[in-house]
Write a protein that binds this DNA or RNA. Structure first.
Lengths: 197, 197
DNA sequence: CTACTTGGCTTACAACTGTTCGCTAATTTA
DNA sequence: TAAATTAGCGAACAGTTGTAAGCCAAGTAG
């Protein structure tokens, strides 16, 4: 294994270790450099060969989470194209994402209202990107004017993220109910935004 | 000053000190017992004369915040009774609350998705109470059936809290825009929930 | 007046933190 | 092959943390 390869692998070990520490009781600001190093199987001082400090690692994790979010969007669009209601399919896809990437979603959710303004901003940007894409979709498919579509998309994304937060703590049965509830709420928003007045 | 009075006063000093430490960069889990003691002007060990540990103090703070939230509701109802649109008045009242009790709202928001499940549950209950009250109001005023009213209230509260989170980081001008946006979103939800189908 | 209770203090300790320094061993470059 | 680079390590540092033990002084109860 070449030097570069080895270094990259260790770097990914660190990232993976950090994610695994972000369970339901820990936020980025609550995990220590030494803990991450321990979990990654390296000496504390070796951490510095890969990241300047914990903040730099944290921003990297937020980036990774944002990447996962964008993949989620693409997957949802693929599914919608192959039939099925838009709201239904989107919510189902989102709920599956949360179940499969719990700690990734938890990171976004927690740091969105967390103690580091840099993290907050980074997460905010990722969510904004999410809203923008949905806005374009609504303009295209529903023929709503842009400003209104943006407000609609904003509401929808907020409701879905909020439902996701609730789902994080719920068991399978409850998750199903949460999914149905948020679908109803999204339909309310859609109806309210497109109704002739 | 009697012994009881003195003790109560110190206890409130501690609570006040804790709130003042909960600025934009600190959560409950990020403030230490010693810090609170320092800010309250007592020795670290004296803290134990009033609270078993930081968790007990934290739950007390959440309770206090919940109390403030209920006062907010009462104030909003009073204002609505004396005229003005329901959505408009509610959002304005809420935004004023955030401006005047920033750290209190921040506490609720942060611990809602925070690292302590006890705090999360406590905040969750306060918000649920908020939703229940709004549900009753909707049933009474709009004549919507209970289940539907609850879903509507749930969506509205989530949107308002989410807007509040955004407002926390915004300046006055942006806060105004956020207020207008969430009003529009609430009207969407209301329209969508009450429309004849 | 005396005895008791108790809020607050000082001292102390072990655990943990981030970070500096200098070394080693192995890959890469010349 | 010789020289240079560098990922990783161990030891050590000063700082912070929560909390235990014991003392004191002042309010309270008899």
């Amino acid at each position: 294994m070449s030097r570069q390869e080895q270094k990259l692998k260790t770097r990914q070990n660190i990232i993976h270790a950090a994610f695994s520490l972000l369970d339901e009781n820990r936020s980025l600001s609550a995990i220590s450099l030494r803990e991450v190093a321990r979990e990654a199987g390296i000496a504390p001082t070796s951490f510095y060969r890969h990241f300047k400090d914990m903040d730099e690692l944290g921003l990297t994790l937020v980036d990774e989470a944002g990447l996962a979010l964008r993949q989620l969007m693409r997957q949802a669009r693929r599914r919608i194209a192959s039939g099925g209601g838009v709201i239904h399919t989107s919510v189902e896809t989102f709920m599956e994402f949360i179940a499969a990437n719990t700690n990734v979603f938890r990171l976004l959710l927690r740091e969105h209202t967390g103690t580091s303004s840099a993290y907050r901003l980074a997460v905010f940007r990722e969510i904004q990107h999410f809203i923008d894409e949905l806005t374009d979709y609504i303009v295209e498919k529903q023929g709503v004017e842009y400003a209104l579509a943006h407000i609609q998309a904003d509401a929808m994304v907020r409701l879905v993220f909020s439902a996701g937060a609730e789902a994080l703590e719920a068991d399978d049965k409850l998750r199903g109910e949460i999914g149905e509830k948020v679908k109803t709420q999204l339909r309310f928003v859609q109806l309210g935004a497109t109704i002739k007045r």
